[in-house]
Computed example of a mutant assay.
Amino acid sequence: MAVIGYQRVSTNAQDAQLQNDALTAAGCSKIYEDKASGKNAERPGLLSALDYLREGDTLCVWKLDRLGRSTRDVLTIAEDLHARGIALRILTGTLAGNYSPKGEGKFFFTVMAAFAELERDMIVERTRAGLEAAKAQGRTGGRPSVITEDVLTVAKARKAKGESITAIAKALGVSRATLYRHLG
């Protein structure tokens, strides 16, 4: 009977060390990881963990929303685990403990899975509203352009003299693709 961990962060910029430490402390002999949104069905780490698990094993997650952000997906995963004789253990949050798909346990689990999905939807809504507000104020997201008006003027002058794009890009310290994009 193995205890297998699953950890997930939504982006490559996030760190899963907190989850990893908790899963290791919980006795997980193997930990699978994904760096993808919980709404994303393409989570190879989760699929590998589910494939690895056998009857009598336990799937351990740091928090319910790490398993997924879609109520349907979380419930499907939990029901599948139960049908296969695999326990689901949640380390933190309101549902900390072992999941039981019976009576009040199932009801509470379903409600908490719905809250996880609601939270994801609210994050998306707030992000979209923030981007729209910034756009209305004339601000755009993303990295600042390395091509200023001065750099573009120099690049155009060098190109007019017959210098190659590769040489210009190297001299100005920008990529060829960036230079091509700005020169048209």
Score class of each variant (00 low, 15 high):
78 A>Y: 10
54 R>F: 10
85 G>N: 04
46 L>R: 01
92 T>E: 12
41 A>R: 06
30 K>T: 13
58 T>N: 12
71 T>Q: 04
54 R>L: 14
97 G>Y: 00
38 G>C: 06
55 E>H: 14
56 G>H: 14
71 T>E: 03
95 L>S: 04
33 E>Y: 15
41 A>W: 08
55 E>G: 12
73 D>H: 15
67 L>D: 05
28 C>R: 05
34 D>M: 10
37 S>I: 11
29 S>A: 15
91 L>V: 12
79 E>D: 13
41 A>D: 09
105 G>R: 14
29 S>K: 15
86 I>W: 07
87 A>R: 13
43 R>S: 05
58 T>Y: 14
62 W>V: 02
43 R>C: 04
34 D>W: 09
51 D>R: 09
32 Y>I: 13
45 G>Y: 08
28 C>T: 06
89 R>Q: 06
56 G>K: 14
75 L>C: 13
64 L>W: 09
66 R>H: 07
48 S>Q: 15
85 G>S: 02
40 N>K: 14
94 T>H: 06
46 L>E: 00
76 T>D: 13
46 L>G: 02
99 Y>T: 00
93 G>C: 03
65 D>P: 06
36 A>C: 08
44 P>H: 06
92 T>M: 10
62 W>P: 11
51 D>T: 12
43 R>W: 05
73 D>I: 08
86 I>R: 11
47 L>F: 02
95 L>E: 07
77 I>E: 07
79 E>M: 06
54 R>E: 15
